[in-house]
Design a protein around this nucleic acid. Sequence first.
RNA 1: GGGCGGAUAGCUCAGCGGUAGAGCAUCGCCCUUACAAGGCGAGGGUCGCAGGUUCGAAACCUGCUCCGCCCACCA
Length: 695
Amino acid sequence: MMLEGDASAAGAPEGGLGPRLSKGYEHREVEARWSRAWKEGGYFHADATDRSRPPFSIVLPPPNVTGSLHLGHALTATIQDLLARWKRMSGFNTLWLPGTDHAGIATQMIVEKELQRTEGVSRHDLGRAEFLKRVWAWKEKYGSRIAEQHEALGASLDWERERFTMDEGLSRAVREVFVRLHEEGLVYRERKLINWCPRCRTALSDLEVTRDEAHQGELWSFAYQLSDGSGEIVVATTRPETMLGDTAVAVHPEDERYRHLVGKKVVHPLIDREIPIVADAILVDPAFGTGAVKVTPAHDFNDFEVGKRHDLELLTVIDLDGTMNAEAGPVAGMDRFEARRRVKELIVEKGLDRGTKAHVLPLGKCQRCETVLEPLLSQQWFVKIAPLAGPAVAAVQDGSTRFIPEGWTNTYMAWMRDIHDWCISRQLWWGHQIPAWYCADGHVTVDRSTPPACSTCGKGGLRQDEDVLDTWFSSALWPFSTMGWPEKTDTLRTFYPTSVMETGHDIIFFWVARMMMMGLHFMGEVPFRVVYLHPMVRDEKGQKMSKTKGNVIDPLVITERYGADALRFTLAALTAQGRDLKLATERIEGYRAFANKLWNATRFALMNLQGFSVGDGELLGPAAGPADRWILARLQRAVNETLDALEGYRFNDAAAAMYAFVWHELCDWYIELAKEALYGDEPRAKRAAQSVLTH
RNA sequence: GGGCGGAUAGCUCAGCGGUAGAGCAUCGCCCUUACAAGGCGAGGGUCGCAGGUUCGAAACCUGCUCCGCCCACCA
């Protein structure tokens, strides 16, 4: 870790007393000095043309430009820095590439909020071009903080290669990928049911939906009268407001209660419309509710499928802003939740209420703003994912990419095998605008740069698609887009595939899986050999840190108080495989003491090296005593243990091995024993001890 | 409904088949020339519960109880 460099270089004795070390380890002064020295020296720049040494490469998972680093980032930086320094010192041509992510929706929302607060204007007031100018300005202002924070953490990144997901090169890579996938039929545009956030006003992918189990809802039973007057059928629903969009009632084909009704029609309770009763074995569970289900193909994913099977009409009754539209008859114009209450009242008034019971229903919420999502029919861009997932599964199966801890392999496999098409368009302004243009006749032209005319009809006056791509679309290209793709660069030749992808297990699907698919598809080779998934950093109570909970710890507050070494050593020491990490400040204090201990051991050594020069001391000369031999043997053992642990990604074991050696063997025993020789009259014994200390 | 992880000293955690460990906290004694962010020493655990395998189990197997997480279209 940083200390090794500090100690040796701070006092390299050239036949005399080195610079005097302070009595205690002053982390603020020392860490700042070294950070500066590293930067000025440019020691961490990787030479892509150097093929004489084996390569080792890591791309830093790009933090969002939206803000400052949290402890998860500190852990990432610590582990990656540890790997990078270890490999660099072991003779590898090492690249550790930094960068940041534009984080589409998150950044846009922050800037919008900021504009509202400071200038009282919305993005629509400013217009797209002006708004984007503001976001860029914001990015310039805050994006650099990420780099400063990494420097404060002692990260040995190659800053000359820093990238941003929306810089020119990466934007070009994004367009290239989009166009190629479109040419291959793997990107398509279609009107279908998607997850819509009425507050963010954008479509989302399945992954951006969080399930809220705790929601206490109610299951209502409503009677639908048969149009021939022969009775009624009772359906159960948790979402009464969508009944305005009902285009069928479904029952199970084997259900004796309803079999005779299949094919008949019912009168819609609130609107002058007749809808059919259909039999559907997939949708309907006869044991649930009443065994009869209302079908709303335009507002429910299951119902959408039923609609396809039975060729039902798609009737949209909820608008993009979450209010009921004109089709919604008696509740038109109402907010969807208000409409729910009103529908119930109307049903009761008409005497069609057949009971209510409490029911826990899972709610799909927007990951970003917690708003209850609405499944809506919408025209969006999608990635056809199955053809990409196949090779990504195979590559893990055959060991081309290995997960550590390996338990995550199953998680990855399970998701990949049951993967759905990826909705990639977002109704935002901040991001990569989709490279698709439309002519007046509605033909689509997809191209790398603005086309002069429609590729179908040749008309000019094209208008570019206003939507942008999902942030993760560009992230998926990160391992090769940052290295210059689609150009064939030396960097790609030397450093792709990367050696290790080190990130949190919470983004296996969002990021790791997608990098696998894109890497394999466009580079013909996995993006990384190993995926090391680090644990989540939680607070001392074991809760996930989040801004809303207010329990986020700023790593810089810790480095300021205890030092980056203490924080880094703590994080490494607590990073055991397969277990989340609860950060207790007592541990950090303990490792700060360790940093101090190591500092003072070094100080002791320097104070006792007068008159001794490195060159002329032969290790373990004739005067070497048992203590000298012992400590060197122990050192060797500690080094081996540490290296073994690092090879196996057991960072806690590596930390423990170093800690035990330095404190309990070197300091507690050897230094105490060596005092006898150092302070004694026997010069040869003294020399022996001195040579051991320099070692 | 599936899947995964955890339950070991007051606290945070290692250990994962061979006499219970670390750090912090607690208590006692030491401010003698590397370090009081220190030294020496002490106390403290029937290793979640119940069975089983074994000469031997905290560790392996089975079941259970609590926590936590992920995935899933039960209206």
